[in-house]
Nucleic acid binder design. Structure first.
Length: 859
RNA sequence: GCCCCUGUGGCGGAAUUGGUAGACGCGACGGAUUCAAAAUCCGUUUCCGCAAGGAGUGUCAGUUCGAGUCUGACCAGGGGCACCA
């Protein structure tokens, strides 16, 4: 019997699919329901390893399954091609970023094609292509016209290694997301997108994302960080610096506990006071001099200075409150000023204790006694009953908040307000390999947009990477141009856009990548959007997924399209990684799995013969060398084996560990499936057979096939691919053990195999085609409809009922389905095992759950 | 500090609504085949026990005829946010 040879079969079927252009998406005219499935597009960093392939395989299973279910599927692929690694490669190897990038794209495209993905390659895009980024420049200008892109001087995150600014979302634990370097704060003039304008809708809409993981929804909600509260205006006793100081608080119910106000050191009032007061000036400088990295800021001790001015309490104009400046007050959040209510806030309490400010308890914890309740070193931050607070006395916190706001509004000294943690998206990058910002700076006219007919602003080719700073800035001529408005000599914007801008709308471009006069054809976008199933890594839970949600709304508002609800991704699945053991050589260098081998039970470095240290199991990554190259894997085991492996064992959202023995198990399975299929005798009916009059073993095998079909279908729908794999294993085991003895048996086996082959087609498409063809199936299996399980075969006519005595299983009986309770009870009570277990005890109750279980309660 | 998730055999995991815990795979062990090996095939494999039987889903309680599944407290691991007023 011949073995299945993926090396021959896989290219053959790939050509067959390509010849009939099988995966080209139709569109509005196809007459079929649409389904848009998308994997987060790759950054072309070099080569694809088995780890990367998991993401694409999962999307592919969905694409192929939906296709078999009669959907017009859009499943495109492209390249997130701008980014810093290309510049690093240019610096290290002297190759132009474009050349490096396109070279990688060619390699990776071939790798993805060898994986047998059902992709519509006619829609391929690369974001570094001027045909793509010209539209991005047009979008930038549209956002600018609509007030959603703006330029301002602000404190921003500066990555000293990558020599560029970063968005807040790209700073992880105080370090740059790519370089890992400690991020510094710098005051710079930069471009921003006004994502904060959408903070409210972006929060509210999270609730409707019911096909997103809860985890991602929570993370987005926390990131935006909406807090509801009040803005309170404290009247200044001295009006040199204005009428009031405005403060944001979430707890206006504690207003009667106010003992000081604290302003950020760079608050305008503090700055004004510092001019005539050397002590305040010194304090401000001290704060400014203090470390600029996130970590230093966090560790800095609390300190402040009395500014010598006073405000009046909004509810009592005879009550004066001192105004301080404190280093822990952030100028960027709320109004850059707080009121200190030490009894109810730990930080305020620490500050009050340090500087001897009053601590007035105003919230009584539940079950506490007003007469004895005191605050020592620990503030009570929870909700409770308000006291010591005049008209708020006796109210519970939520009611007191409302009452306080009501009063503030009546006095015109405040109002209900909402504050957000989210900052506007800083999109300027001081890098070369990105989309140029289409703006010209003119001494007379200011920032002037490049007129639409002059787009794209193309990157110059002749740049150097021998210095760390922005190559566009250093380019001798590129930045020199004329002002589009007045014609005078002017300077081009040399910053490029954050690459996350590119990935914020690529899924729209895929709907009509050939459109030249617009980023996308609105009719196509409206037909295909939203993406029905998006698949990608959890690392984008905030970054990309939040930006994209903002972008579709912004594009809606700029009139570029109409997308109901504004959400780009109706369904999101965040897949786990592929992990692998790590290895280090005797001298501490990372080694790849192909550089080691096992000799006499210990693993040694092949080159030196010295033993290696086996390290932690970690996500496959180039830096730790624990990768298995996809081409090499396919060379040995085939694409189907890679696909089956990454879907097996672990739930898709969890990590799966790559092991050689696991891969061998997959190989065994593929061969076993093949021998099972080819074991069908000559002249057997085709795979579309329905062996309607089967009985006995033949009927059992039919039932097994239809049950497996039902469970596999459910598992695919529920994104439980590991379960689907197990159910397929089960069916293969049943089919290979079934040796038909007559024509009816052969027909039943043929039917079972026919179901099996169509069922595995989304997972191992090449093997499925080969099987379909040997079984004599008509056409290609990709064109075969998903089989329907016969409901009559899903129900058993007898059931095995476990019988419990006091909740412990003691026996089981086989009864006809639907046997009356009385009879079941009688059978159960007379069963030997039950009689033994109940001897000498009184039967108090018998619970019969029809066709499920019997429980006898004795005592 | 606040918020969220996860704890099941030697391992990855299954048990979708409370109803036979451990499907399926890996590993291990035994056997067949072979001169031998690879490959393949057939068994066994939660733990204790020869067995009958007993115990068992992180711990402790609770609800229930019945809990991996529900509730509460705790323990452990992972993740997110964090001077955010």
């Amino acid at each position: 019997m011949s073995r299945y040879n993926p090396r021959e079969a896989e290219p053959k079927w790939q050509s067959a699919w390509a010849e009939r252009d099988a995966f080209r998406a139709g569109g509005p005219e196809s007459g079929k329901p649409k389904y848009y499935v998308l994997e987060m597009f790759p950054y072309p960093s070099g080569r694809i390893h088995v780890g990367h392939s998991r993401n694409y395989t999962m999307g592919d299973v969905v694409a192929r399954y939906k296709r078999a279910r009669g959907f017009d599927v859009l499943h495109p692929m492209g390249w997130d091609a701008f980014g810093l690694p290309a510049e690093n490669a240019a610096r290290d190897r002297g190759v132009h970023p474009g050349k490096w990038t396109y070279g990688n794209i060619d390699v990776m495209r071939k790798q993805l094609q060898r994986l047998g993905l059902a992709l519509d390659w006619s829609r391929e895009i690369a974001t570094c292509d001027p045909a793509y980024y010209r539209h991005q420049q047009a979008i930038f200008l549209k956002l600018w016209e609509n007030g959603l892109a703006y330029r301002k001087t602000a404190k921003v995150n500066w990555d000293p290694v990558d020599q560029t600014v970063l968005a807040n979302e790209q700073v992880i634990d105080g370090k740059g997301w790519r370089s890992g370097a400690e991020v510094e704060q710098r005051e710079l003039d930069q471009w921003f997108f006004k994502i904060t304008q959408y903070a409210d809708v972006l929060t509210d809409a999270i609730e409707g994302l019911d096909r997103w993981p809860d985890k991602v929804r929570t993370m987005q909600s926390n990131w935006i960080g909406r807090s509801r509260g009040a803005e309170v205006r404290f009247p200044l006793t001295d009006t040199r610096f204005g009428e009031t100081i405005d403060v944001f608080t979430t707890r206006p119910d504690t207003l009667f506990g106010a003992s000081f106000l604290a302003l950020a050191p760079d608050h305008p009032i503090v700055k004004a006071l510092a001019k005539d007061n050397p002590q305040i000036e010194a304090f401000c400088q001290d704060c400014a001099r203090m470390g600029t990295t996130e970590e230093e800021i966090e560790k800095a001790p609390k300190k402040g200075i009395d500014l010598g001015i006073k405000v009046r309490h909004p509810f009592d104009d005879t009550w004066e409150i001192p105004v301080w400046s404190a280093n822990f007050v952030l100028s960027g959040y709320g109004t850059g000023a707080i009121f200190g209510s030490p009894a109810g806030d730990q930080r305020d309490l620490d500050f009050a204790r340090k500087y001897g400010l009053p601590v007035n308890p105003v919230v009584l914890p539940p079950n506490a006694d007003a007469a004895t309740h005191t605050i020592e070193d620990e503030a009570f931050t929870g909700h409770g009953t308000i006291y010591n607070s005049r008209f708020l006395d006796g109210l519970e916190t939520p009611a007191a908040i409302e009452r306080a706001i009501e009063e503030l509004e009546k006095l015109d000294l405040g109002k209900g307000a909402t504050s957000y943690r989210l900052r506007d998206w800083l999109v300027s990058r001081q890098r070369y390999w990105g989309c140029p910002i289409p703006i010209v700076h003119c001494a007379d006219c200011g920032a002037v947009p490049v007129p639409e007919d002059q787009l794209p602003v193309v990157l110059p080719e002749d740049v150097t990477f021998d210095q760390p700073s922005n190559p566009l800035e250093r380019h001798p001529t590129w930045k020199n141009t004329d002002c589009p408005k007045c014609g005078k000599p002017a300077r081009r914007e040399t910053d490029t856009l954050d690459t996350f801008v590119c990935s914020s709308w690529y899924f729209l471009r895929f709907t009509s990548p050939w459109t030249e006069d617009a980023p996308f054809a609105p009719a196509e976008a409206e037909h295909w959007m939203p993406v029905d199933q998006y698949v990608g890594g959890i690392e984008h839970a905030i970054l990309h997924l939040l930006y994209a949600r903002f972008f579709t709304r912004a594009l809606n508002d700029c009139g570029l399209m109409k997308l109901d609800g504004g959400e780009p991704f109706a369904g999101l699945f965040t897949q786990g990684m592929v992990t692998h053991e790590t290895y280090k050589s005797a001298d501490g260098k990372w080694l790849g799995p192909d550089e080691i081998e096992e000799r006499d039970g210990t693993r040694v470095e092949i080159a030196t013969g010295k033993p290696v240290t086996v390290g932690a199991i970690e996500k496959m990554s180039k830096s730790k060398k624990n990768v298995v190259d996809l081409d090499e894997f396919i060379e040995s085991y085939g694409a189907d084996a890679a696909r089956w492996f990454v879907l097996s064992d672990s739930p898709p959202e969890r990590d799966v560990e790559y092991t050689d023995s696991g891969v061998e198990g997959v190989w065994r399975f593929i061969q076993r499936l093949w021998t099972t299929v080819t074991s069908l005798p000559e002249g057997a009916p085709g795979p579309a057979t329905i062996a309607a009059d089967a009985s006995g073993d033949a009927l059992d095998i039919r039932k097994a096939a239809h049950k497996a079909l039902k469970s596999v279908t459910d598992s695919i729908e529920g994104f439980r691919f590991n379960s689907a794999v197990a159910q397929v294993h089960d069916l293969v085991n049943a089919l290979r053990k079934f040796e038909p003895t007559d024509a009816a048996g052969v027909a039943a086996k043929a039917e079972g195999l026919g179901i099996l082959v169509r069922m595995i087609a989304p997972f191992v498409p090449h093997l499925a085609e080969e099987c379909w063809s040997v079984l004599g199936g008509e056409g290609l299996v990709i064109d075969a409809a998903w089989p329907e399980a016969d409901p009559a075969l899903l129900v058993e006519d007898t059931v095995t009922l476990p019988i419990q005595v006091n909740g412990k299983r003691r026996a089981q009986i086989d009864v006809a389905k639907g046997t009356p309770e009385d009879l079941v009870k009688e059978l159960a009570l007379s069963h030997d095992g039950v009689v033994r277990a109940t001897e000498g005890l009184t039967v108090r109750k018998v619970i019969v759950v029809p066709d499920r279980i019997v429980n006898i309660v004795v005592g």
